[in-house]
Design a protein around this nucleic acid. Structure first.
Length: 575
RNA sequence: GCGCCCAUAGCUCAGUCGGAUAGAGCAACGGAUUUCUAAUCCGUAGGUCCCAGGUUCGAGUCCUGGUGGGCGUGCCA
């Protein structure tokens, strides 16, 4: 870890242990009165029944920080304020500058992670509701992979169940070519609604649909072929959206409900063999302790309905079983909306009762709030329907294109189109990622596309400006990476400290699966940079300051690009 | 009824394991531009951290009880 704060922590641990007679937290924190502050003397003094300033003095006298700090002073009741030595910061930066991983070590305990996200339904439109799970999931995947974990993406699409009888019959009615044409153009809802309308109005169709479901569930070859065709049309369309959005999901990640049909009976039998299943109101259920319904009676997880059908809880239990035993995963992540919280609690509880989830395996629901419109209700289109995700993305790019044309008319058409795509999509993703995921957020074009404030364009702009400096200076970026960095100006020190905090920012982000923490860090970094940019001329500076500042610029640009990359956002070189 | 989540500046949001004086951005006001991309920067102003207790040397943060809002609470997924 390159972060001076964690280094100071490491240096002080033995000192505090020595004073306390047992391990004690030095409580190293960032400070607005110095570079860092050490607060651990206060609780320790309480514990030992001595004077906190006295303990602080012993910490200072230990000399543990001699090579790191140019100033160490005790303040107030026993805080220790630290000022890092410029030489120390410079040396740390030097180490990061030559590191392709920007100071971040792979996780020493790599895990096998299965992450479940996106999950659109076949023959249904991808709408704004799919944005968060897809974007947050994608960012987490990128961060986990960078951390050295084995990540298995699972796109649990809705590709099985009763509606497929009517969908397949409708497919036969209108013909494959017509259906494929419609879906290629993104009209999935039209297909679904037409099928549904016939199902409600037409008894003959209804009967055909019912027969078709039976055929599907018995894997009748002709029916399966039609079903596959239908799934393929939809996934082709999903891939268009994923491509536009710039996420990692491909056909290889598809792991729909159909794939678990054969696992559900296994899961069911094992629950039965374990004696967990009870009969209740005709259904077969498991009662995990601690859950009650509105009448204060035990709340069941229904594994098999009165009619003998497996339920969605069964499907999720089958997923746990499959992911733990076949894939040997030891971390299961579910990027699914907050309303599903109780459902996952119950599924995990039952999986633990069954012994599928053990102490070595963690299952984590990663909940998120809703995307709201101006009216603070779920985002809807003017007509009141769901907002198509593609339309939302296209509008983002259009709006970005207008802004780019306005701000930088020098770009040629191709370049402008590409930059607009990068900015527009980046803005949508960043708006989604930059606030605490548990909260609802209001979708606001003007705010997310503003080139000021905590937005993707602001971060991208900072990056583009740095690239511009190197173009102007005609200096190869890689050539400055072994340059000694000198920190004379306060803005340089602030920037330097921020750059060194990158590993901590990423670790904090991953510890709680909260991408907004990385966003906050990158925004702070961009602000520190622009402040530096205003106050510290680079090209006009004399050597060796010029070279030192170029090195700072390069490292800043790399950190911005890398951090945005982990969020699934591209940093253009010009905009 | 019970459970989960949310409440911080006019607006949108951060706030790390409990640390000193609660921070950004937007909007408002006042400055900076023969530019390294001003898509920017500097400054001013703006607070009952929903309320009331409690724990603590110290609470926006932890605990208890409320208020307001959202969601969930057996045979859809």
């Amino acid at each position: 870890m390159a972060d001076p704060l964690s280094l100071v922590n490491d240096l002080l641990l033995p000192v505090f242990a020595d004073i306390a007679g047992q391990p004690a937290d030095p409580v190293v924190r960032p400070s607005d009165r110095a570079d860092a502050q050490v607060n651990g003397a206060l609780p320790l003094a309480k514990q030992l029944g001595t004077n906190p300033r006295e303990i602080a003095q012993r910490v200072v006298d230990s000399g543990a920080l001699a090579n790191v700090c140019s100033d160490v002073e005790i303040a107030g009741p026993g805080f220790i304020n630290l000022t890092f030595a410029d030489s120390f910061l410079g040396a740390e930066l030097g180490a990061v500058a030559v590191d392709d991983r920007l100071g971040i070590s792979p996780d020493p305990h790599p895990r096998t992670v299965v992450i479940d996200y996106s999950a659109p339904n076949v023959a249904k439109e991808m709408h704004a509701g799919h944005l968060r799970t897809t974007v947050i999931g994608d960012a987490l995947v990128r961060m986990l992979e960078f951390g050295g974990h084995t990540v298995i993406r699972e796109n649990h699409i809705g590709d099985w169940g009763r509606p497929f009888g009517m969908l397949i019959e409708h497919l036969l009615d209108i013909g494959e070519d017509v259906a494929a044409e419609g879906m290629q153009q993104g009209d999935l809802d039209g297909f679904y609604k037409a099928a549904n309308a016939k199902f409600t109005d037409d008894e003959e169709f209804q009967a055909r649909a019912r027969d078709r479901v039976v055929k599907l569930q018995s894997y009748d070859p002709e029916t399966i072929a039609l079903w596959e065709r239908l799934v393929e049309m939809s996934t082709d369309y999903f891939n268009q959206v994923y491509d536009k959005l710039g996420v990692l999901l491909t056909d290889d990640d598809l792991m729909g409900e159909s794939k678990y049909q054969s696992v559900m009976p296994v899961a069911y039998e094992r629950l039965r063999a374990a004696g967990l299943i009870e009969e209740s109101d005709g259904a077969e259920v498991v009662f995990p302790p601690g859950f009650t319904n509105r009448d204060n009676e035990p709340l069941p997880l229904i594994v098999k309905s009165r009619t003998g059908a497996f339920m969605y809880a069964t499907s999720d239990l089958a997923c746990v079983l499959d992911r733990v035993e076949r894939l040997q995963a030891d971390l299961l992540l579910y990027v699914v909306g907050a309303p599903q919280a109780q459902h996952f609690q119950m599924v995990f509880a039952v999986a633990k009762m069954a012994g599928w989830l053990t102490d070595d395996v963690d299952a984590v629901h990663i909940p998120f709030g809703s995307v709201l419109g101006d009216d603070r209700k779920m985002l809807r289109s003017r007509t009141g329907g769901a907002v198509k995700l593609v339309e939302l993305l296209d509008e983002a790019v259009e709006r970005a294109a207008e802004a780019v044309a306005d701000k930088n008319p020098d770009l040629d058409d191709d370049e402008r189109a590409e930059v607009a795509r990068t900015i527009g999509i980046g803005a949508v993703k960043y708006a989604d990622l930059s606030t605490d995921r548990i909260k609802d957020y209001v979708f606001d074009w003007d705010r997310m596309l503003a080139f000021e404030g905590n937005t993707a364009p602001y971060l991208q702009y900072a990056h583009a400006r740095i690239c511009s400096i190197f173009r102007r200076a005609d200096v190869e970026r890689t050539s400055v990476r072994s340059t000694a960095i000198d920190l004379g100006e306060p803005q340089e020190r602030e920037l330097a400290k921020r750059l060194l905090a990158y590993p901590t920012a990423l670790a904090d982000t991953l510890a709680t699966y909260s991408p907004h923490k990385l966003c906050t860090y990158l925004f702070d970094l961009a602000q520190d940079f622009t402040s530096f940019y205003e106050h510290c001329p680079v090209m006009k500076a004399d050597e060796p300051t010029r070279a030192s500042r170029l090195a700072l610029c390069d490292l800043t640009a790399r950190t911005l690009e890398h951090g945005l990359g982990l969020l699934g956002i591209t940093a253009p070189e010009a905009m």
